[in-house]
Nucleic acid binder design. Structure first.
Length: 491
RNA sequence: CGGGAUGUAGCGCAGAGGUAGCGCACUUGCUUGGGGUGCAAGAGGUCGUGGGUUCAAGUCCCGCCAUUCCGACCA
């Protein structure tokens, strides 16, 4: 009764903000634009980390860690790169405080000014490529496949929990290769890793594509991306993988001797996903009762609620629940028994629904007598009574897989139904106003792209990799076009 | 950087010159327990901050600070 979420169809962004807070995922901190990620929210992020980290290792990458601070001069070595980030950098200018001579508190010690300012990393290409120069001399040093889990800071004008915060957590892969082909293959491979993770772990269908020149990462030759559709029809970039060419190798003078004893610049990629995925997760699946977590991701897949009056009943019910939970735990399921005596069952039902746990099993004296257990599915809200002896690994796996698949199917149907192919500018605008993605022809110029953005707030999310050759006319200018691109309003 | 809103108990809010309030949460006891139990008794406050008006200021006036929402910005 104390907690009530706003309805999605009344105020989507308020619903989102409230859900993040009420489901105990994160809250605003004392620092403007920065959030505190609470244990439950962080637990979900840790699951993402574990699964991705394993995929990175399986594809040959190793983790390392580079400094939080970047000397100012590093950032300006790659011209496009500094242009892209200069406006949102936090800068460290001093290294000491002292007592305020005029009274209470402390002041920045003017005598402690840094010789060269330090930038709090908005991304680590520069510091990493500076380091790679020392690590790479020979073709035998390549490929160099490194990932880092880190925090970065981008001083954005406007922030929203998980979707855009001043400081956020992410991983950034930075690889160096002997050839262009190999680097492009790496960038594409990591895009596939992301797409696989987002679709099969987060149950969110994505569109794979490349960015237009205008939307490309600062310093990249090609930016591959995966785009997802949220329930309100807006797009969310869920991950990017960049082919950086030799830009950073040249900026930081990273060359290697090939087998013919010739010096060559190395080829680079970088790729990343962030805590923004939490936002994608929430806005893809959740409903007016709270979060809905796909089972492959959920930190808790099954919560058990004991129902009882007397101590004897409690002992009996708990005895049974513990034996079931222990069995499932030993088979690798993530389970929790909520035996908090200070909360009543109804309260717990609502609470775990708010937190999105895929399955809830309740067991009380009546069930014990009937040798059954109540099973509740968070995604469909179906309740059923199952014979206790049926609660075995195969059955649970089947149920969890079904939920996982169901969430994906719902999201995929939404994406299909709301991706509209249009050939006129009027249809284009109408479809956007109906919260849809739009596949339309575009003349390939940044001018047209910006004009459309100005008039409709829609951007080209990507040129889908599977977009077939098709003669057509630009939806805005009527100039010739060879394929459709994906337009949408975006987060 | 524009526009709006808000700063009062842990949280959410009311109070619009004259004794600091309500709901939730918290503590204690009983009750209840299969969809956010009910009752009772408690504990908890420099009313964001600095100045001004007044016999008297959460309350009116001016400044400042902070947060937040909507835009602009956003590889």
């Amino acid at each position: 009764m104390s907690k009530k979420l706003p309805k999605r169809n009344e105020n989507y962004s308020e619903w989102y903000q409230e859900l993040v807070i009420q489901a105990d995922l994160a809250e605003h901190s004392a620092v403007s634009g920065c959030m505190v990620i609470k244990p439950y929210g962080y637990g979900i992020w840790e699951r993402m980390q574990q699964i991705l980290d394993q995929k990175f290792k399986e594809t040959g990458h190793q983790n390392a860690y580079f400094p939080l601070f970047i000397p100012k001069s590093f950032l300006s070595k790659e011209a496009q790169h500094v242009d892209g980030f200069a406006k949102e950098c936090a800068v460290v200018t001093h290294h000491r405080l002292k007592n305020d001579p005029n009274g209470k508190g402390v002041i920045v010690d003017p005598d402690a000014k840094l010789e060269e300012e330090l930038i709090v990393r908005p991304t680590s290409e520069t510091i990493i490529w500076h380091t790679y120069k020392k690590w790479i001399q020979s073709y035998r040093d390549l490929p160099l496949l490194i990932n880092q889990w880190a925090n970065v800071v981008r001083w954005e004008m406007r922030t929203r929990l998980f979707l855009r915060t001043t400081e956020f957590l992410w991983q950034e892969g930075h690889t160096a290769h002997a050839t262009q082909e190999e680097a492009i293959a790496e960038a594409k491979q990591m895009l596939e890793v992301y797409a696989d993770f987002v679709e099969n772990t987060l149950s969110i269908p994505v569109i794979k594509g490349v960015k237009t020149e205008n939307e490309r990462f600062a310093g990249a030759l090609e930016t591959y991306c995966i785009e997802a559709m949220m329930q309100d029809g807006k797009a969310l970039q869920a991950g990017t993988s960049h082919f950086l060419g030799q830009n950073f190798a040249k900026a930081f003078d990273v060359q290697y001797l090939n087998k013919n004893n010739q010096l060559e610049y190395v080829w680079a990629t970088s790729w990343g996903v962030s805590t923004r995925l939490m936002g994608a997760l929430i806005m893809s699946h959740s409903d007016d009762d709270g979060l809905i977590l796909p089972p492959n991701l959920a930190p808790i897949q099954i919560v058990f609620i004991p129902i009882y009056k007397t101590n004897e009943e409690y002992a009996e019910v708990m005895d049974k629940l513990e034996s079931i939970a222990d069995l499932l735990k030993s088979e690798g399921f993530r389970v929790k028994i909520d035996n908090d005596d200070s909360k009543r069952p109804g309260w717990k039902f609502a609470e775990w629904e708010l937190k999105g746990v895929p399955l809830r099993f309740s067991l009380g004296p009546k069930d014990l007598k009937n040798h059954q257990i109540e099973v509740f599915r968070r995604d469909t809200k179906e309740k059923s009574f199952i014979p206790i002896e049926n609660i075995v690994s195969n059955y649970i796996s089947m149920l969890l897989n079904d939920i996982q698949k169901n969430l994906f199917n719902i999201a995929q149907n939404r994406l299909k139904e709301r991706t509209i192919y249009v050939d006129s500018y009027q249809e284009f605008k109408n479809s956007l106003d109906n919260d849809c993605f739009v596949m339309a022809h575009w003349d390939g110029t940044t001018e047209t792209e910006l004009l459309i953005k100005e008039e409709t707030k829609a951007t080209i999310r990507c040129i889908p990799l599977d977009s077939p050759f098709e003669e057509g006319k630009c939806v805005k200018t009527g100039k010739p076009s060879q394929r459709r691109v994906l337009f949408a309003r975006a987060y």
